[in-house]
């Protein structure tokens, strides 16, 4: 019973909204700046290559950036939990990174590094790093203090403590961070594409806005929403496979 809603709720909500938007547009409730979902669909059907030219490059950069951010955040959180004095600096550095106004710095980075994949990956990683870092850092200290005492009495090695206690106990918070960060990676990539790229949803947005091609703008908007939801769903799906004990129901009292 628990599986279905988690997977399908975002999709069902999206479909419902599409139906409402279609009806509203056809009955003239929306201004001309809002496209009907059927018009948006026509954009893709009329030019199937658009998918490969926009959605795929954006998803690619976002996923690589997201994975880089996850790797960097996990490494930083591991260092923070192993070396106590490093905790506060690592946290503060994360706060500083996340408070950078990417809208202002991204064009500078594009000029500096160029408009290649690495820039988009970097921006996606910057946009998604902090939530993963917070999840991992809080997660690594989420075990109960008596559990730590138990592992001491059982004479566990530091590695056993890490593998059997610290990491499993961190998973619920770690996945919370991963889920929050997933849409940020997509939005970060689009921002980087705005600032300069050859292909991608951000490029399509700029182009379509300039041409006042309303259905294309809405195609880009819809596609980026679905991408963000898809990356979120991926993180949630992995979480459900890994963090099973949270679903426990009481058998007997």
């Amino acid at each position: 019973m628990r599986r279905l809603p988690v997977f399908w709720l975002p999709l069902v909500t999206a479909v419902l909204l599409l139906v409402v938007a279609e009806i509203a547009q056809r009955s003239g409730l929306f201004p001309i700046t809002v496209a009907a979902p059927s018009q948006v669909w026509q954009v893709l059907v009329g030019n199937p290559r658009l998918f490969g030219e926009t959605v795929v490059p954006t998803l690619q950069a976002a996923l690589i950036g997201y994975l880089c951010a996850a790797a960097a955040a996990l490494a930083a959180a591991s260092v923070a939990s192993l070396i106590a004095p490093a905790w506060t600096p690592i946290y503060r550095f994360g706060v500083a990174l996340s408070s950078i106004p990417l809208t202002a710095t991204t064009p500078l980075l594009v000029v500096w590094i160029g408009n290649g994949l690495s820039t988009r990956v970097l921006i996606a990683a910057l946009a998604s790093y902090f939530p993963i870092l917070v999840g991992a850092m809080q997660g690594f200290r989420a075990f109960e203090s008596t559990s730590a005492e138990l592992f001491h009495v059982l004479s566990a090695s530091p590695l056993q403590r890490l593998r059997l206690l610290v990491i499993p106990a961190s998973l619920p918070l770690l996945f919370a961070g991963l889920k929050i960060a997933a849409p940020s990676a997509i939005l970060g990539t689009i921002l980087a594409e705005w600032a300069g790229a050859e292909r991608g949803l951000g490029v399509l947005m700029i182009y379509a806005l300039g041409a006042f091609d309303v259905p294309k703008v809405w195609f880009a908007v819809t596609a980026s929403c679905l991408l963000a939801a898809a990356v979120y769903a991926l993180a949630a799906a992995i979480e459900m496979r890994v963090v099973r004990w949270q679903a426990a129901t009481v058998l007997e009292d």
């Binding site: 109960e144 008596t146 559990s147 005492e149 138990l150 592992f151 059982l154 004479s155 566990a156 056993q160 059997l164 206690l165 499993p168 106990a169 998973l171 963090v243 099973r244 004990w245 426990a248």
Partner: peptide, 23 residues
């Protein structure tokens, strides 16, 4: 301990086996 201090992700039998695993 006063609280059971079981690892919530391990089944009952795997919790009982934990000291063996560590040793």
């Amino acid at each position: 301990f006063q609280s059971p201090t079981l690892l919530p992700w391990r089944t009952v039998i795997d919790n009982v086996r934990l000291p063996l695993r560590i040793a």
